[in-house]
Deep mutational scan, measured.
Amino acid sequence: PDLGLTQLFADPNLIENLKKNPKTSEMMKDPQLVAKLIGYKQNPQAIGQDLFTDPRLMTIMATLMGVDL
């Protein structure tokens, strides 16, 4: 199971919303991170391994779920 990750990354406004959010806007200036996020739309399971190697993803996930870290 993808634990709902498919829906989190399926939002067509995902990148724009993250660019507008004060907690994630600075991160979204990294083209490699943006490319990763776009890739998760097609393969949400890929985030599982990346969560352990890129701490920014935890902040992004929390933001998408509405959790304040």
Rank of each mutant, 00 (worst) to 15 (best):
P1I: 11
P1V: 15
P1R: 02
P1Y: 01
D2S: 14
D2F: 04
D2M: 08
D2V: 15
L3S: 13
G4E: 13
G4I: 15
G4Q: 15
L5H: 07
L5Y: 12
T6I: 14
T6M: 14
T6A: 15
T6H: 14
Q7W: 07
Q7L: 11
Q7V: 11
Q7E: 14
L8Y: 11
L8M: 10
L8G: 02
L8K: 05
L8W: 08
F9Y: 04
F9G: 02
A10D: 11
A10F: 08
A10I: 07
A10M: 14
A10K: 11
D11N: 09
D11P: 03
D11E: 08
D11V: 04
D11F: 02
D11Q: 08
P12M: 06
P12W: 04
N13L: 09
L14S: 03
L14W: 06
L14M: 12
I15C: 06
I15Q: 01
I15R: 01
E16F: 08
E16G: 06
N17V: 12
N17L: 12
L18F: 02
L18Q: 00
L18M: 03
L18N: 00
K19L: 11
K20T: 11
K20I: 09
K20R: 13
K20G: 10
K20V: 09
N21M: 04
N21P: 00
N21Y: 06
N21E: 04
N21F: 05
N21G: 03
N21D: 09
P22D: 05
P22L: 05
P22E: 08
P22C: 06
K23S: 09
K23Y: 08
T24R: 00
S25N: 09
S25E: 09
S25M: 12
S25F: 06
E26W: 08
E26G: 08
E26L: 08
M27R: 01
M27I: 10
M27P: 01
M28C: 03
M28T: 02
M28D: 00
M28E: 00
M28F: 03
K29R: 12
D30V: 02
D30N: 04
D30K: 01
Q32Y: 14
Q32P: 03
Q32G: 14
Q32S: 13
L33T: 02
L33Q: 01
L33Y: 03
V34S: 03
V34F: 03
V34D: 00
V34P: 01
K36H: 04
K36M: 12
L37H: 00
L37C: 02
L37K: 00
I38H: 08
I38K: 13
I38T: 08
G39A: 14
G39Y: 15
G39D: 15
G39T: 12
Y40N: 01
Y40E: 01
Y40P: 00
Y40L: 09
Y40F: 11
Y40Q: 01
K41I: 15
K41H: 12
K41V: 13
K41W: 11
Q42C: 09
Q42R: 08
Q42H: 14
Q42I: 10
N43M: 04
N43T: 05
N43K: 05
P44V: 08
P44Q: 05
P44K: 03
P44Y: 04
Q45Y: 09
Q45D: 13
A46Y: 09
A46S: 13
A46N: 12
I47R: 03
I47Y: 11
I47E: 03
G48Q: 15
G48V: 15
G48S: 15
G48K: 14
G48L: 15
Q49C: 10
Q49N: 13
Q49A: 13
D50T: 05
D50V: 04
L51G: 05
L51Q: 07
L51K: 05
F52R: 11
F52P: 08
F52C: 09
T53V: 09
T53G: 07
T53I: 09
T53K: 14
T53A: 11
T53L: 11
D54S: 02
D54R: 00
D54W: 02
P55Y: 09
P55H: 12
P55T: 10
R56L: 08
R56M: 06
R56G: 03
R56D: 06
R56I: 07
L57F: 08
L57Y: 04
M58Q: 08
M58H: 09
T59H: 09
I60D: 00
I60A: 02
I60Q: 00
I60S: 00
I60F: 03
I60K: 00
M61S: 03
M61W: 15
M61C: 09
A62F: 14
A62T: 12
A62K: 12
A62W: 12
T63R: 03
T63P: 01
T63N: 05
T63V: 15
L64W: 03
L64S: 02
M65E: 04
M65N: 05
M65W: 08
M65S: 09
M65L: 15
G66F: 07
G66P: 06
G66C: 08
V67W: 15
D68V: 02
D68W: 02
L69A: 13
L69T: 14
